[in-house]
């Protein structure tokens, strides 16, 4: 591997320890096993709640959304190794951009689809 400008090591400011270089390599990927199980639980719980309509639709929507966000965070942490890096945590920058784009697209879609009243 020969990188361009990612070779420079930069000292981390105190208080930013969580993005300082850190790399885990356990013998058995127990984290991932738990993460996978938890993802399945979150998925099937959401499906079960929706199919059986255990709450009013608006509350259900909120709960399912919350579970989706939880699963997203879980997968980022467990499978995407977001807390690990061999060098400075450059990946946080595009990750932030991804969130901005994602939230932007979802937010704007919601805005666009609120068109039922006041058709022009």
């Amino acid at each position: 591997m020969h990188g361009g400008d990612d070779q420079h090591e930069t000292a981390m400011e105190p208080g930013f320890d969580f993005i300082s270089p850190r790399f885990e390599e356990p013998k058995f990927p127990m984290h991932q096993v738990w993460g996978y199980a938890a993802s399945l639980v979150l998925t099937f719980a959401a499906l079960w709640m929706t199919v059986n309509r255990i709450m009013s639709p608006s509350v259900l929507l909120g709960v399912v959304l919350a579970m989706a966000v939880a699963q997203g965070a879980l997968q980022l942490g467990v499978f995407m190794h977001v807390r690990e890096s061999r060098g400075p945590a450059w990946h946080l920058l595009p990750l932030g951009m991804a969130f901005a784009i994602g939230i932007g697209l979802v937010g704007m879609s919601a805005w666009i689809m609120l068109f039922k009243s006041g058709v022009s």
């Binding site: 591997m1 020969h2 990188g3 361009g4 400008d5 990612d6």
Partner: peptide
């Protein structure tokens, strides 16, 4: 592109 450029080839 981000990881495998020749040495010296900055963005």
């Amino acid at each position: 592109i981000l990881r495998m450029r020749a040495p010296g080839m900055t963005l």
